[in-house]
Amino acid sequence: MFRRLPEARGEPLNFTLDGKPFSARSGDSVAAALLAAGIETCRATPVSGAPRGPYCMMGVCFECLVTIDGVGNRQGCLIPLSEGMRIETQQGARAIAQEVA
């Protein structure tokens, strides 16, 4: 879906998505990192379970919600990727009870 410009700078950063290792660049938002890795679907909606992915990339649509380091429903497009981030796709409504446990 997206490829990096050859002249683009940025330090490589490692992260995991649902346990699998990926890498992206510093300066990427979490949502951009996922798209750069070819992942367009980040969650299933709590209403119908329909698949969704990043849409606006500017914090208004709330489609790129993911679980980051154990905390659910974070806006991936507003959160800068950092080294070692543990990102998980979300299936339905946020399971708050399991986050704390």
């Binding site: 997206f2 490829r3 990096r4 410009l5 002249e7 683009a8 700078r9 940025g10 660049r25 300066g27 990427d28 938002s29 951009a32 798209l35 750069a36 990043p54 849409y55 606006c56 990339m57 500017m58 497009c77």
Partner: peptide
């Protein structure tokens, strides 16, 4: 616009 943001902020095309 979302794709443009990726270009500006991440150099992704």
């Amino acid at each position: 616009g979302g794709a443009q943001t990726m270009l500006k902020a991440s150099g992704l095309v």
